[in-house]
Nucleic acid binder design. Structure first.
Length: 268
DNA sequence: ACACTGACCTGCGAGC
DNA sequence: TGCTCGCAGGTCAGTG
């Protein structure tokens, strides 16, 4: 399931592979994936080039000659570069023909991913009410303290709010809280200043480390070239049975509609 | 404004 | 073996 580090990895891989390529054809096999009228989507993109590659939260933003193509992979979205003669499989929903004869194919088992076009000059700063990027200076302990003011929800829910910090999903939220020695069910109103500082610091460090590893592979995620992420080797609580530090049994708790893994001994 | 729930999807594994 | 059911999870719309 792609979170910020996986999206970043996909982006960098695609930049190496398709930068400068022209879209010479588009086949939409599952129209609900496109948030625009499919004909307008196709007409807009035809003969434009993939020029720039940006990320905002978990959104991929492809800069074209005149406008943008934005893609969200949601849970299982993947891009593959293939030859036209290779067979289409049942989960390939959008195919872009490129001017070098290859095809960029969007594959999504659960059809949750979405694509949308945006006009030239569109400002993505406040896109979808996204909060600061974790590596931005604006994401700091003062900001966190001000953001959570008046809130009482479990800190895990806060970590998953894209308007708080952009790009953190279920896996990394668990890892960040484990590294910060804070239980996911703790009310965000009861965090100490030191804990807020630790959460901010660990958000940066863990995401940066995951990007260095090329993302996480849990269940079905692989990046666009089928590169397998290595971060699962370093997961300390998510999907684990015992704590790497103290050997305690990892607990699973249902918080905010998602399973949350934590060590009852190391996390307070 | 915040909190909570269901919808969107398909594959997989558990239980019967 | 074959069926049903619950779970996986990012985002958004709808309701309280």
């Amino acid at each position: 399931m792609p979170e910020l580090p996986e999206v970043e990895t996909v982006l960098r891989t695609l930049e190496q592979q398709i930068k400068g390529r022209e879209i010479t054809g588009i086949t939409i096999l599952y129209p609900k994936m496109i948030e625009d009228d499919p004909d307008e989507f196709t007409a807009f993109l035809m003969h434009q080039h993939f020029n720039t590659f940006q990320r905002r939260g978990k959104y991929l933003i492809f800069g074209l000659d005149h406008g943008y193509l934005v893609s969200h992979l949601r849970m299982e979205g993947k891009y593959y570069l293939m030859k036209p003669e290779e067979p289409l499989t049942r989960h390939m929903h959008v195919v872009f023909d490129l001017d070098d004869g290859r095809q960029l194919r969007y594959n999504d088992t659960r059809k949750f991913g979405r694509m949308k076009i945006y006009p030239e000059g569109y400002d993505f700063t406040h896109f979808h009410d996204l909060g600061p990027e974790p590596f931005d200076d604006a994401f700091n302990a003062d900001y966190m303290h001000a953001y959570k003011k008046g809130r009482k929800c479990p800190v895990k829910e806060l970590m998953l709010e894209q308007s708080f910090v952009a790009g953190v999903g279920n896996i990394y939220a668990d890892e960040i809280l484990a590294a910060s020695h804070v239980r996911p069910g703790r009310s965000c109103a009861r965090l100490t200043r030191k804990e807020e500082e630790a959460i901010v610091r660990n958000t940066r460090e863990i995401l940066a480390e995951a990007i260095r590893c090329g993302g996480t592979t849990i269940r079905t995620y692989t990046s666009s070239l089928g590169v397998t992420g290595r971060f699962q080797l370093y997961c300390s609580v998510h999907m684990q049975k015992t704590c790497r530090v103290c050997g305690s049994e990892i607990k699973v708790k249902w918080i905010g509609g998602r399973s949350s893994y934590y060590c009852p001994h190391c996390q307070k």
